[in-house]
Amino acid sequence: MANTLMNRNDFGMLDPFERMAESFWAPFENMTQVLKTDIDENDDRYQVKVDVPGIDKKDVKLDYRDNVLSIKVQKESFVDHEDKDQNVVMNERHAGTLQRQYALPNVAADKISATQADGVLTITLPKTAPAKSEGHIEIQ
């Protein structure tokens, strides 16, 4: 039973040119690993929609502190590649954390709500009146 996993050479698993090509594209691989987000604002609220396909809501952590909304997603996946005789050809495991933060001022933190449906996390942040501040400080 020969497969590509058994085709080793003196350079390890990959041909040196293949390794060079992989390292060339490596900086661009994680660009897809971003929480895609839309933020709408009106006079009463901010509404944040985040794509989280395949993520259970227990793996999503939300926090609003110091006018910043923080979203943290723990993602783990396992892909099983077995043939009909239960011979393992290859197994892949991926785990990681995705995070985003957004400055959203003047929010009533105690009234923030969140729902998750069809792979989209929707966070509603009701606004409060901004703190009145003159901004001028007189020196005595």
Rank of each mutant, 00 (worst) to 15 (best):
M1E: 14
T4Q: 13
L5H: 11
N7V: 09
N7A: 13
N7C: 07
R8Y: 09
D10I: 02
F11I: 02
G12P: 04
G12N: 06
L14I: 01
D15C: 07
P16S: 01
E18L: 09
E18T: 08
M20R: 07
M20W: 10
F28Y: 11
F28W: 03
N30F: 04
M31H: 06
Q33D: 08
Q33K: 06
V34R: 04
L35K: 02
T37F: 06
T37K: 03
D38N: 05
E41T: 02
E41D: 02
D43W: 04
R45T: 01
R45W: 02
Y46C: 04
Y46E: 02
Y46L: 04
Q47E: 11
Q47T: 12
Q47R: 07
V48H: 00
V48M: 00
K49I: 00
V50M: 10
D51Q: 11
D51G: 00
V52M: 00
D56I: 03
K58D: 15
K58N: 13
V60R: 00
D63S: 12
Y64P: 05
R65F: 14
D66C: 02
L69I: 12
L69H: 08
I71Y: 01
K72H: 09
S77G: 14
S77I: 08
F78G: 06
F78D: 11
V79D: 15
D80V: 12
D80C: 09
H81S: 14
E82N: 08
K84P: 11
D85F: 10
Q86H: 15
Q86N: 15
V88T: 13
V88W: 10
V89Q: 12
M90I: 12
R93Q: 15
A95E: 15
G96D: 12
G96H: 10
L98Y: 12
Q99P: 03
Q99V: 14
R100L: 06
R100S: 13
L104K: 05
P105Q: 03
P105M: 01
N106R: 05
A109W: 04
A109P: 05
K111S: 15
K111F: 02
S113D: 15
A114V: 00
V120H: 09
I123G: 05
K127D: 11
T128M: 14
A129Q: 13
A129F: 07
A129E: 15
A131L: 12
A131D: 14
A131V: 13
K132L: 13
S133V: 12
S133W: 14
E134K: 06
G135W: 08
H136A: 05
I137W: 10
